[in-house]
Design a protein around this nucleic acid. Structure first.
Length: 590
RNA sequence: GCGCCCGUAGCUCAGCUGGAUAGAGCGCUGCCCUCCGAAGGCAGAGGUCAGGGGUUCGAAUCCCUUCGGGCGCGCCA
């Protein structure tokens, strides 16, 4: 029987034991088992797994935790997977599994291959993951990078867990920023016509990347635009510039292997006389969440131009926000928030019940109002989870890399990817919790040592492949596909504690994937892979001092085959996890 | 002033949504290895989980509060 998720399996068995106790009248019927868990204990002396069942159920059962634990333990002792059961501490039930259980788990991993760890807990629920959403006003810089990688990896994780995922990029192409972009591009256009434009004025975009836009405009329109007034050339120039900027951004994303399914234009919300923003406000108004009123002036950050006025407000305080939020500016146009509500309404109308937004740290103050809006629009039936990714501090051998946005001299994403490679960037962006500030050292990520987790994990996979190459040299008739050994090999030969430890680590993978997906925390995969690689390298190292623990034993083909299966298990999981992170699993290190 | 995030070993950080005696890497100390099974190994020291209070069988984790750091606070997006 394959154990594709041994922890989930044991949880079922613990619950079954409790059901038996209900049938026996020891536990009251209808008792809530939802808080019962089966976890790997921190301390290996406590066995392979521990369940809190007795402690969680004790109160409802009106029994002492330890007494109840003994009764549950008695049932579990009969389990075929279980070797030893002990009641410990305040009422933990510690389980030690038979080696055969871990062997079953290893076999399941190999049988499933790239599908090991995959689950259907998402039940095909449509989830929208919106990430990056950088303004289309220039190339992506390193600050955008983390959100892009995070969103992409999270999407991978959710797909793997059975959700129906749409990856989405929101193009902010409707505000003042893109008008500034158009004016900047217009200067480059005049420059392309031969005019000396001098220095780019303060407030416009100075970067050289707009020169091709100017050249393209000159090629397309000749000097005709130069004679027109701004009102007539601006829309043309803006559209051209946005299209070319988006092409650049797509290319930047592609360098990271990030490929959104949908690029959603903010301006499309108000195209062709169809005012979706107005419709959205109307829909909120019908629900009673829009009113005309006054706001208190913001404290602490005194605005000299504060004007106390009656304005159109969204009652976000009805959903836990601190203050109601304006929907229209003083000139009567919609606020960014208003169109953002309309955008999120579009997501709801497209059938998504679970929305995930990935934002930069500077937008954190925006979360409550957006969640309020989603709750209001969906009558609380849909959820919005906002993942805030914190700043990336770029270092070179410990020294901060200067990045000033002025004069366009920011560090672009492309520069970084070109310097250290996509894999290093992607892995390191995920080797930290999203809400913690991240140090990214351009020198360290290229080191070939244990200090560098990217290297260490990839090397684990490469080393496994190297074992197979050497094994084929030693035993010429080994099958090309090592996984074919799974059925034939006598895995009971894997009995060394270090080998069992590795099997336990492999068995943990589906559990890690499930919890990372549920928590929307892809970094857990990265840390898990580092642990798995560490265990694997440790076993390899044991072979130095103890040749009988090497993977390839010349005069014992049977043992070699068993160990190759174990190594294949490691390689399978490393490759799977790296794929979730969007990082290559190399066959050799160069 | 208010809101959000963070505060865990000298440093950089994990800690599986409340579990048992809080972990890893680096650095430090002491041994070993340094014939490509190369891109090191073993052991050790090192903690008031920022401080205080609360919730309960049980708190680094949840709540309140104080301190320290970061981000933000109509008419930018």
């Amino acid at each position: 029987m394959p154990l594709d998720n041994i922890f989930a399996e044991m949880l079922e068995r613990v619950r079954a034991a409790n059901e038996a106790l209900i049938a026996a009248g020891v536990l009251p019927s209808g008792i809530d088992q939802s808080r019962v868990t089966v976890e790997p204990p921190r301390d290996a002396a406590h066995g392979d797994m521990a369940t809190n069942a007795a402690m969680v159920l004790a109160k409802d059962a009106s029994r002492k935790p330890r007494d109840l634990a003994e009764m549950i333990a008695e049932r579990l002792r009969a389990d075929t997977l279980v070797d030893r059961v002990e009641v410990a501490g305040p009422g933990f039930i510690n389980l030690t599994l038979r080696p055969a259980a871990w062997i079953d788990a290893l076999q399941a991993a190999l049988k499933l291959g790239g599908d090991y760890g995959r689950s259907d807990i998402g039940a095909d629920m449509p989830v929208n993951v919106e990430y990056v959403s950088a303004n289309p006003t220039g190339p992506m810089h390193i600050g955008h990078c983390r959100g892009a990688v995070f969103g992409d990896a999270l999407a991978n994780l959710l797909v793997f867990s059975g959700f129906k995922v749409t990856r989405e990029y929101y193009i902010n192409d409707a505000g003042v920023q893109v008008d500034l972009l158009a004016r900047s591009a217009f200067l480059r256009y005049r420059e392309a016509l031969g005019e000396n434009i001098g220095a780019i004025p303060e407030g416009l975009y100075p970067g050289d990347y707009l020169k091709p836009v100017g050249a393209a405009l000159a090629a397309e329109y000749g000097d005709s635009l130069a004679k027109q007034s701004e009102v007539s050339w601006l829309p043309l120039v803006r559209d051209k510039a946005v299209v070319m900027m988006m092409a650049m951004i797509r290319a930047d994303l592609a360098a990271l292997n990030v490929k959104p399914d949908v690029f959603f234009s903010e301006r499309s919300l108000i195209w062709g006389g169809e005012d979706q923003v107005g419709a959205t406000i109307e829909s909120l108004r019908q629900r009673g969440y829009v009113y005309e009123g006054r706001l208190p002036p913001p404290k602490g950050a005194p605005a000299d131009d504060w004007e106390d006025r009656e304005q159109m407000l969204f009652r976000s305080t009805a959903f836990g926000d601190d203050v109601d939020r304006p929907l229209k500016k003083s000139d009567g146009s919609y606020t960014y928030f208003a169109s953002d509500i309309a955008y999120h309404r579009s997501k709801l109308e497209r059938g998504f019940r679970e929305l995930i937004d990935v934002w930069g740290a500077d937008h954190a103050g925006y979360i409550k109002r957006m969640q309020a809006a989603v709750a209001a629009l969906s009558d609380r039936s849909a959820g919005l989870d906002v993942k805030v990714v914190q700043l990336v501090k770029l270092l070179r051998a410990g020294e901060p890399v200067k990045m000033s946005k002025r004069a366009g001299e920011f560090v672009t994403l492309r520069e970084v990817v070109d310097e250290v490679g996509r894999d290093a960037v992607r892995f390191m962006m995920l080797f930290r919790k999203n809400d913690a500030v991240l140090d990214f050292d351009l020198v360290k990520v290229l080191e070939q040592s244990r200090d560098n987790p990217v290297f260490y994990v990839q090397y684990g996979h490469a080393r496994a492949q190297s074992v197979f190459r050497n094994a084929r040299a030693a035993f010429a008739d080994l099958p090309q596909d090592i996984a074919q050994l799974t059925g034939a090999a006598d895995l009971a030969r894997l009995s060394d504690p270090a080998e069992l430890a590795l099997m336990r680590q492999i068995a943990l993978y589906p559990r890690v994937v499930a919890s990372a997906a549920a928590a929307h925390e892809p970094h857990r995969i990265a840390f898990y892979l580092f642990d798995l690689a560490s265990e694997f390298h440790a076993l390899w190292t044991l072979g130095n001092a103890s040749p009988h623990l090497r993977f390839i034993i010349q005069n014992d083909r049977q043992l070699t085959e068993a160990r190759l299966v174990l190594v294949q298990g490691v390689a399978t999981v490393l490759a799977s996890g790296l794929a979730l992170l969007g990082v290559e699993a190399p066959n050799e290190m160069r």
